[in-house]
Measured scan of single mutants.
Amino acid sequence: TRVETATETAWISLVTALHLVLGLSAVLGLLLLRWQFPAHYRRLRHALW
């Protein structure tokens, strides 16, 4: 049971790290898009909202 718990903890930390990385890359990508294509971003936002 001790090994299982350790594996579970490792998986949880791995998944958390993955989610953090994905979230950060998504935010960075959005910022980059907004910085590179302001007109396109505004049009996209206008279409979405």
Rank of each mutant, 00 (worst) to 15 (best):
V3N: 05
V3A: 05
V3T: 01
E4V: 12
E4A: 14
T5F: 02
T5N: 01
A6H: 08
A6N: 10
A6L: 09
T7C: 02
E8I: 03
E8R: 03
T9M: 11
T9G: 12
T9K: 10
T9V: 12
A10V: 14
W11S: 02
W11Q: 07
I12C: 10
S13H: 11
L14I: 13
L14P: 04
L14W: 00
V15N: 05
V15C: 11
V15H: 00
T16W: 08
T16K: 03
A17S: 11
L18A: 01
L18T: 06
L18M: 15
H19C: 01
H19E: 06
L20M: 13
L20K: 01
V21T: 11
V21Q: 00
L22Q: 01
G23V: 11
G23R: 01
G23M: 11
L24R: 03
L24T: 06
L24I: 14
L24Y: 01
L24H: 00
L24V: 15
L24K: 05
S25C: 15
S25W: 06
A26N: 02
V27F: 12
V27C: 11
G29M: 13
G29Q: 01
G29N: 03
L30G: 10
L30A: 13
L30V: 09
L30Y: 08
L31R: 02
L31V: 12
L31Q: 06
L32N: 02
R34Y: 05
R34I: 07
R34E: 04
W35D: 05
W35Y: 15
W35L: 15
W35V: 15
Q36K: 11
F37W: 07
F37M: 09
F37T: 04
F37C: 08
P38Q: 15
P38I: 10
P38T: 07
A39P: 04
A39C: 05
H40D: 05
H40V: 07
H40S: 10
Y41E: 06
Y41Q: 02
R42Y: 09
R42T: 11
R42I: 09
R42K: 14
R43N: 09
R43G: 07
R43H: 07
R43P: 05
R45Y: 05
R45E: 02
R45F: 05
L48A: 07
L48S: 04
W49K: 03
